[in-house]
Write a protein that binds this DNA or RNA. Structure first.
Length: 858
DNA sequence: GCAAGGTC
């Protein structure tokens, strides 16, 4: 009988590889799949076994609402709280689910090597579900590093997956989804399009991102309401043994000038300082503990100028290239088995700190400070040596810091002598201090943390010294500055907002949504939108933007993780509370709106005059802020426009159906297409069934029209309007089910573009005029086009300029056209997708043909 | 178009 098969699943491919390498002593067979599978023979629970080690790539599933809740306009956000939720595959293209199911076939046991935290426990159950394993045959390996010792120990001490912890994550997902989506949809819909200068594509809410924004706005409000106060302080100066020294007053600063002047008088009456006390104390500046993600992000932002998102991208790349250890970790304690000698040796040839490292290797390095072990991954350390030119400037800076920090952790502490001399005059005490470094320790490697020497002349106790100058210093208290990114990361960490991996995402979110801007010195300056939102929450329900909202959720799901309360009960309880908050927020939204009204301009006062309304025949205003729209002040109607592209008036032409003036939308760039549209038809398509077509064009799915999708003239089936698809369409698109239409403003670089995809076809360049005709090709039913060539460059033999023909069947025209795609050129040849393409698009039954054949010569 | 959490 063959030995039983054991399937092992890790959280990411690199861990699968590491575990397999340890267990197989490097003797494994690796094959590719959705993720790599490593196979080898070994021992499992004292019997021979065949191992297969593979991995997922993070979470297998993510939570969402079923399809019927996806349409914003057809769903009341309040209903989302009680809606069902479904688990979809996180990354359907990776086919992780199928992969696990296939690999599980014929396996007797499952061993789960996922990170040892709640999320890891949750992924265990995702793997169980995907693979179809019975939990009876599944085991959990608990490990905190992938060293041989740890891996073998974990395999000898297998436990069962922890369902309670996994359920806590399920609960968190459901609560975050429902709360976030309900509030986001409600406030987006409420404010969208209401104000002219408000960028309101999405006005999001989330239990992590909103408190994050709250921190930035809170600081802004503190700055704004700050009242400076004057203060006074006595600054005596002395000349002693060639040093000029300013002494510090024991009382620091006083906020009453009369009191300060009284002391000044007392001191002046005495006139002579007496040395009362001299002391020396050895101080220690401790070496750093191991580097975790949050601290790396803080240094990257404050010292290197990299935002968290950027820093993580750089770190990720250094990690995948093998230069540093895994960059997402909370722990600052090194595992007991950590190979310091090995890691240090890799740095021994570095031109900057190599000599110092060699010293540590020969004279002995220090045991690092203990730090904290959260049981996830070891601190971030360099894994191998690197050179600046192979890494590139930014990655090198980050790598350099990681090396310096690592070396710093095994260096001696910095020690210095602190000298203090105390004086008395007129009954008041003053002092001065000096520093003398004894041992540089880790500051030799991290020079920016060095203690600078400050020498003091020698004094004798009881000595009397003249005051050379007595200054009554007048100062003023200063407001705090904007939060730096580094401050924000600390606040998030201390308040339990986000995780090492998600903190950069939240910060990025509030920047991208235009709630804050990163300014010089990586300071976070809230925008009017960000400030108004937070002030709105503060007036309606301050909880909504306080970090407690996250701690409340965390605390509730911890009850599930501990197995104390049923998970459905907790979810229902928390959801009930948020439903109440939501109802109250909806009821009071006018209070927030009042703040918006004060900050943003109404539609009437914003925008510029653009085109005529077909109903009242007056001019409408074009509002360019997202989402772009037209506003008719007379009819008080808003007409949505395409989200992207530059909008202009189109030759003062009018739509024959509704009399609205036509607009031209041009996409940027040399290959950007231009198309006309009627502002009324765009949002209110006049022909039945057109929505499905529009949605196919915009999103590739059918259904109701979503935001940002509309009917331009290039999709309009109007039979006689000169701008409609029927008039401007030339032939079927060879790439999709769309139609190639003439770009009416492309002269002299005449071209056709597809009304559905980004397919582009260049027509004879430099022609005077190219237009469609009502005639059709007898061969392929395409529109015959008329070309008026330039006199000088006409290809026609008799020097004439006018030519009519089909771009596919007319030899001359066909030889003059060239096919290109909007994004990246792909040859249409040999793609073998087996599409069935016929003539469609012009609304008339034509002879079926395969345009792919006609385009074969491109 | 929406959350937060994994990982790439």
């Amino acid at each position: 009988m063959p030995p039983p098969k054991v399937l092992m699943v890790a959280e990411k491919p690199s861990i699968a590889l590491a575990i397999a390498s340890v267990l197989s002593h490097g003797q494994m067979f690796t094959r590719r799949g959705s993720t790599e599978v490593h196979e080898f023979e070994g021992m499992f629970r004292d019997s021979p076994a065949h191992f297969k080690v593979t991995s997922v790539i993070g979470h297998v599933f993510s939570l969402d609402f079923p399809a019927k809740y996806q349409d914003w306009s057809a769903t009341d956000p309040f209903d989302l709280f009680q809606a069902q939720v479904v688990k979809n595959e996180s990354n359907p293209k990776a086919h992780i689910c199928r992969h696990l199911n296939q690999e599980a076939r014929g396996c007797r046991y499952l061993v789960l090597w996922l990170d040892c935290d709640r999320e890891g426990e949750n992924i265990c159950f995702e793997v169980l579900e995907s693979s179809g394993f019975n939990i009876r045959d599944a085991y959990r390996a608990r490990f905190s590093s992938v060293t041989e010792k740890d891996v073998l120990k974990a395999l000898d001490n297998l436990v069962k997956p922890n369902r309670a912890e996994s359920l806590a994550v399920d609960a968190r997902q459901e609560i975050d989804l429902k709360v976030g989506v309900a509030f986001t949809r409600f406030q987006t819909s409420f404010f969208q399009g209401k104000y002219g200068n408000l960028d309101s594509r999405v006005i999001s809410y989330g239990p992590c991102q909103t408190p994050t924004l709250g921190f930035c706005v809170q600081r802004y409000l503190q700055m704004n309401t700050f009242k400076p106060e004057k203060f006074w302080s006595l600054h005596p100066y002395i000349f002693h043994n060639g040093y000029e020294i300013q002494l510090e007053w024991q009382r620091g600063k006083l906020f009453d000038i009369n009191v300060a002047m009284m002391f000044q008088k007392l001191v002046a009456q005495d006139g002579v300082l007496k040395v009362t006390e001299m002391s020396e104390k050895q101080e220690t500046k401790a070496r750093p503990v191991g580097l975790n993600t949050v601290n790396l992000l803080k240094v990257a932002s404050s010292a290197l100028g990299f935002g968290p998102q950027m820093a993580m991208q750089l770190a990720e790349r250094l990690y995948t290239q093998g230069y540093i250890s895994y960059p997402r970790t909370e722990s600052t304690a090194y595992p007991p088995s950590f190979d310091f000698r090995g890691a240090l040796s890799a740095q021994a040839n570095n031109p900057t700190w190599g000599n110092y490292v060699q010293g540590l290797l020969t004279n002995g390095y220090h045991k690092p400070r203990s730090g904290t072990d959260v049981g996830d991954h070891p601190p971030i350390t360099p894994m191998r040596s690197a050179a600046e030119d192979t890494l590139g400037n930014d990655a090198w800076k980050l790598y350099q810091y990681i090396c310096q920090h690592f070396i710093g952790t095994v260096c001696p502490d910095c020690k210095y002598l602190r000298r203090k001399v105390e004086f008395s005059i007129g009954g008041e005490s003053f002092h001065c201090t000096g520093h003398n470094v004894i041992t540089k320790g880790f500051t030799a490697i991290m020079p920016w943390l060095a203690v600078s020497d400050k020498n003091l002349p020698s004094f004798i106790k009881g000595q009397k010294i003249e005051v050379s100058k007595m200054e009554l210093y007048e100062g003023s208290t200063a407001p705090p500055d904007y939060l730096t990114e580094s401050d924000l990361i600390s606040l998030m960490e201390n308040n339990g907002i986000g995780t090492d991996a998600s903190i950069p995402v939240h910060i990025n979110n509030i920047c991208e949504r235009n709630y804050v801007q990163v300014q010089a010195g990586r300071k976070l300056v809230p925008t009017t939108l960000g400030i108004t939102l937070v002030r709105g929450y503060q007036t309606i329900d301050p909880d909504l933007c306080l970090p407690d909202i996250r701690s409340f959720i965390e605390q509730q799901i911890t009850l599930i993780a501990k197995g104390q309360i049923d998970h459905h009960y907790v979810v229902q309880h928390v959801i009930q509370q948020f439903m109440q908050k939501f109802s109250y927020f909806v009821k009071k939204i006018e209070d927030m709106d009042a703040l918006f009204e004060a900050q943003f301009s109404t539609l009437t006062e914003s925008g510029r005059i653009l085109s005529k309304c077909g109903k009242c025949l007056r001019y409408m205003k074009y509002i360019s802020a997202q989402p772009p729209r037209l506003y008719c002040g007379t009819c008080e109607e808003v007409y949505d426009l395409p989200q992207k592209g530059i909008i202009k008036l189109y030759k003062e032409l009018c739509c024959p159906l509704d009399n609205f003036e036509l607009l031209l939308c041009s996409m940027p760039g040399p290959e950007g297409k231009s198309y006309p549209l009627c502002p009324y038809c765009y949002s209110n398509p006049p022909f039945e069934g057109i929505e499905a077509l529009i949605n196919t064009a915009k999103t590739g799915t059918s259904g109701k029209m979503g935001k940002g999708a509309g009917m331009p003239c290039t999709l309009c089936p109007h039979p006689s309007c000169p701008n409609s698809l029927v008039s401007q369409g030339v032939c079927a698109c060879p790439e999709c089910s769309g139609t190639l239409v003439l770009d009416p403003v492309s002269a002299p670089k005449w071209r056709l573009f597809c009304n559905m995809c980004n397919c582009l076809v260049f027509l004879p360049q430099g022609a005077h005029r190219i237009s469609t005709t009502r005639e059709r090709c007898s061969e392929c039913d395409s529109s015959i086009i008329e070309v008026d060539f330039n006199k000088k460059t006409t290809p026609l033999e008799d020097g004439s300029t006018l030519h009519r023909g089909c771009i596919l069947c007319d030899e001359l025209l066909h030889s003059l056209i060239e096919m290109k795609h909007g994004r990246g050129f792909r040859s249409s040849r040999g793609r073998g997708r087996g599409r069935k393409v016929g003539y469609r698009g012009r609304g008339r039954g034509g002879k079926m043909m395969d345009p792919k054949m006609s385009f074969r010569d491109f």
